[in-house]
């Protein structure tokens, strides 16, 4: 394969991570926030891949697989919680949830 600059790969990962972070800070809907968390996780995993490719070892990929597993579990539970909130009639707005409004 043609040579690739690892700095660009890491930079890509960083950009995606920051975008995910900004998304969390800006969006108020719980679903969107979870989504942006996923973006961040994905970006972090990508950084692992880049690092593994640099040393031509499988360790990076292994980490990414673990990360996938974790992301899967997290999304499952998170979405279940969101559904629970939704069924109770609470607004899915993190600001009003944070202030602990009464039902």
């Amino acid at each position: 394969m043609t040579p690739v600059s690892f700095e660009y790969g890491l930079a890509l990962a960083a950009i995606l991570f920051v975008l995910g972070l900004v998304g969390i800070l800006v969006r108020r809907n719980l679903v969107f926030m979870l989504l942006c968390t996923e973006i961040m996780l994905n970006a972090a995993g990508f950084a692992f891949i880049v690092a593994g490719a640099r040393w031509a070892q499988s360790d990076g990929q292994v980490m990414f697989i673990f990360l996938l597993a974790m992301a899967g579990a997290e999304v499952a539970v998170g979405l279940a919680l969101i559904l629970l909130l939704f069924s109770r009639g609470r607004p899915l707005d993190v600001d009003s949830l944070s202030s602990g409004e009464d039902r």
Binding site: I24, L25, S98, S99
Partner: peptide
């Protein structure tokens, strides 16, 4: 100490 999660995330960042 606002209690708002987004502010805390911002703090982390």
């Amino acid at each position: 100490q606002t209690g708002k999660i987004r502010h805390y995330v911002a703090g982390l960042a």
